[in-house]
């Protein structure tokens, strides 16, 4: 798949209020449990006014893959990072390499985990459960267009 057609999960920080429903859902989808610490999407809160949820960006030529000294990470054609748990030894180099901090080590297993975009369902559950539609599953180009629209709207409203 051409990278421009890849959809990613984007988060509108104006709408994200830090409710963590995405994290609860993700922990179920990923591991069948309720445990936000096992979520692949992470809610970041910076006091007093900022909230955003972040997850894998499906980067082109991803640094996490490059960083892995054991060849445990591969990017699939659809952009999703596949992890070979037999090869991963939890060194965490990919964690340090990722500029978004969204690839992490599993709390218990100490193997690397990352968002797989709910491949088994076809579309991400966090987006479906986000009560404020802060999360969207779109291409980066679509996200850019939406942002332009929003910026223009604000500019016009302020005039």
């Amino acid at each position: 798949m051409e990278s421009r057609l890849r959809k990613v999960i984007v988060c509108d920080p104006d709408k994200c209020n830090g409710c963590r429903i995405c994290e609860y859902v993700c922990s179920y989808v990923s591991e069948g449990v309720m445990n936000i610490k096992k979520s692949r999407i992470r809610v970041v809160r910076i006091e007093p006014f900022l909230n955003i949820a972040v997850t894998c960006r499906k980067c082109e030529d991803p640094v996490c893959v490059k960083a892995c000294p054991r060849d445990a990470l591969k990017q699939k054609p659809n952009g999703i990072i596949a992890i070979d748990e037999n090869k991963c030894n939890g060194c965490g180099w990919c964690v340090e390499a990722c500029p978004f901090g969204v690839i992490r080590l599993h709390l218990g297993r100490r193997k690397v985990i990352v968002c797989d975009y709910c491949e088994k369902y076809g579309s991400p559950k966090c987006v479906e459960y986000c009560p404020k539609e802060a999360l969207k599953y779109v291409t980066v180009d679509q996200a850019g267009r939406e942002l332009s629209k929003k910026a223009v709207k604000i500019l016009l409203e302020e005039r």
Binding site: N17, G18, C19, I21, Y24, P48, F49, P131, K132
Partner: peptide, 19 residues
Amino acid sequence: VKKIIACAGCPIACDHVNQ
């Protein structure tokens, strides 16, 4: 109001943070 925030697991989000 500068930001509206929610408690964990809340789909409503009533908390209005002022500046």
